[in-house]
């Protein structure tokens, strides 16, 4: 049609050319907008994940402080977690720690993989129960453990809420697992593996809901981050 029009008369060709240019401009602008939007969303999520990550690192520090403060009780807890060992039946050289296997602890509500009969029971993890906040009916956070931030508890931390210009947020942290490993005949080279989780909530559901179609219509604004570290506690537990 355009060709016929051209052959017949060039009238209107300027508009056609302009419209063609405009189409290219539209494509360019759309691409620009989309890229800009993606960058902003990714950047936002990185910012949130960093916050959650540092809360998790803070929880690991708390765990280390407890081990540092209560080293004997920590080893007792390890022993209790697997059942008490009768010291009188330990063969020479009477090193009871040789008989303590590695330990995995669960928080209430946590389901191990594979699941175990003791899942969700508050046993050895009570050593660290002081860090835990949970909600039996989580609504907003369905992506990890069903844990949701609860205000008013000792795990509710607000970043500079008195000065909202500094990008405030809510968050909490919890120690999820402590594993005592690499035991030897003394505790000089004992190591613990600490797994902690931090959660933060910026309150921005728009940014956090993007690109996560598997959650469907579930609105959430919370980001969780898991931190795992291996630390030599030999210098801590020797008094």
């Amino acid at each position: 049609m355009l060709l016929k029009l051209y052959k017949k008369n060039n009238a209107g060709m300027a508009i056609l050319i302009t419209l063609t240019v405009c189409v290219f401009l539209l494509v360019f602008a759309t691409t620009l907008y989309q890229q800009n939007r993606e960058v902003r969303i990714v950047e936002f999520k990185v910012k949130e994940s960093l916050r959650a990550q540092f809360l998790a690192k803070g929880a690991a520090q708390m765990a280390l402080l407890k081990i540092r403060t209560l080293p004997t009780e920590f080893y007792d807890a390890v022993r209790w977690s697997k059942g008490w060992v009768d010291e009188t039946k330990v063969p020479l050289p009477l090193d009871i720690k040789k008989f303590i296997p590695n330990v995995v602890v669960n928080i209430p509500g946590f389901v191990s993989n594979p699941s175990a009969a003791t899942d969700g029971t508050p046993h050895y993890l009570d050593f660290y129960v002081g860090f835990h906040v949970d909600n039996p009916t989580p609504l907003g956070n369905v992506q990890l453990l069903g844990k949701i931030i609860a205000s008013g508890s000792d795990l509710y931390y607000a970043a500079d809420m008195n000065d909202p210009t500094n990008d405030p947020f809510k968050g909490d942290c919890v120690v999820k697992q402590i594993r005592l490993i690499s035991q030897h005949n003394n505790n000089i080279s004992d190591n613990v593996e600490i797994v902690a989780e931090g959660s933060e909530d910026s309150g921005n559901t728009y940014m956090m809901n993007n690109s996560l179609g598997h959650l469907k219509d579930t609105p959430f604004s919370q980001y969780n981050s898991v931190y795992r570290t291996m630390i030599d506690i030999g210098y801590m537990v020797v008094k």
Partner: peptide, 15 residues
Amino acid sequence: KYQNNYSLVTFKAKL
């Protein structure tokens, strides 16, 4: 005070 702001929170133990 500033156009763009950011904040991070963590904890440190005395070990």
